[in-house]
Computed example of a mutant assay.
Amino acid sequence: MASGELSPWAPGGSGPVPDPYAGSYHGPWGPTPDPAPPVSDEVLRQLPPPVSGPAGPAGPTGTSAAALAVQRPALVGLAVTLAVTASLLWVTGLSLFGVVALAGTDAMASAGDDGVVFHTLDQFVLRMGDGLWVPLYGFPVASIVTGFLLLTGRPWARVAHSVVGVATLGWAGWWLRDSLLAWICVAVYVGLSVAVLWAPSVGRWYASRSRPRPAAPQLIG
């Protein structure tokens, strides 16, 4: 305060400085906008109906990504379960029987009361040693591998799994040529696990997975 000026609060002063915004309900930022008028029922009736379903980025033809995605059919999971379960059980049972056969031929005598069991186990060991283990283990292992490949959605995986199934039935028909009933049981199980892969819904899923996906937009700059 310059010398010679009286303070507004001193005796004889001019009093408090008036507030330029006194009496204003809007403050220094100006008047607030008026509230929007209520929407009438006539305007609400003219609005389009809401669209159900999750919205996604538009595809190349204007279709949302949610509509382009095709859920994996349950038949694919059924085929994988049938193939993998049967193959694992076969490999486990065959390995266990091989261990029992090796132990039995060492512990039993070739003559006497144990002679029949000994020759049965010994014949199994000899045939496995002659190369029978290759198809007995090869087909189940190939079925397990191609079964898990079905989940990748590649069309060639379905063809490969079907080829393994047909080859298994062909070899089993030759190996079980003296036991038609056993081959029929194998054919029904393997044929069912392969036939479900050629259902129309499964074909549509593999076709949708083989389509090229649209490239993601890139920001330039």
Rank of each mutant, 00 (worst) to 15 (best):
M1P: 03
E5K: 09
L6A: 05
S7V: 01
S7K: 11
P8Q: 13
P8I: 06
A10T: 08
A10Y: 05
P16N: 04
P16K: 01
P20I: 01
Y21I: 05
P28C: 06
P28G: 04
W29T: 13
W29D: 14
D34N: 14
A36E: 15
P37T: 05
S40Y: 08
S40Q: 08
D41K: 10
E42C: 02
V43L: 11
L44Q: 12
P48L: 05
P49W: 09
P54Q: 07
G56I: 05
G59L: 02
P60W: 00
P60C: 00
T63C: 00
S64T: 11
A66V: 14
A66R: 08
A69P: 00
R72K: 04
R72F: 02
G77N: 12
G77A: 03
L78C: 02
A79F: 04
T81L: 15
L82G: 15
V84M: 02
W90L: 09
L94E: 08
S95L: 08
S95N: 00
L96V: 08
F97M: 10
F97N: 10
G98C: 09
V100M: 09
A103V: 13
T105P: 01
T105S: 08
D106F: 14
A107F: 07
A107S: 15
M108V: 07
G112P: 00
G112H: 05
D114H: 06
D114Y: 13
V117C: 12
F118Q: 09
H119T: 14
T120K: 10
L121I: 03
L121H: 06
V125E: 03
L126R: 14
R127G: 01
R127V: 05
G129R: 13
G131N: 03
W133L: 15
V134Q: 10
V134I: 14
L136A: 11
V141I: 15
A142I: 03
S143P: 00
F148L: 12
L150T: 01
L150Q: 02
L151D: 05
G153N: 03
P155I: 10
W156E: 02
A157C: 01
R158Y: 04
V159G: 06
H161W: 13
H161D: 09
S162W: 11
V163L: 14
V164P: 00
V164Q: 07
V166G: 05
A167P: 03
A167W: 06
T168I: 02
W171A: 11
W171C: 04
A172G: 08
G173T: 14
G173P: 06
W174A: 10
W175A: 13
L176C: 03
L176F: 11
L176Q: 10
D178V: 12
S179W: 10
S179T: 12
L181D: 15
V188G: 04
Y189E: 06
V190M: 11
V194E: 05
A195L: 14
A195M: 12
L197K: 05
W198S: 01
A199R: 12
S201A: 13
S201Q: 12
W205I: 00
A207E: 01
A207R: 02
S208D: 01
S210T: 05
P212M: 00
P212E: 00
P212S: 00
R213T: 01
A215K: 00
A216I: 04
Q218C: 09
L219R: 12
I220W: 07
I220E: 07
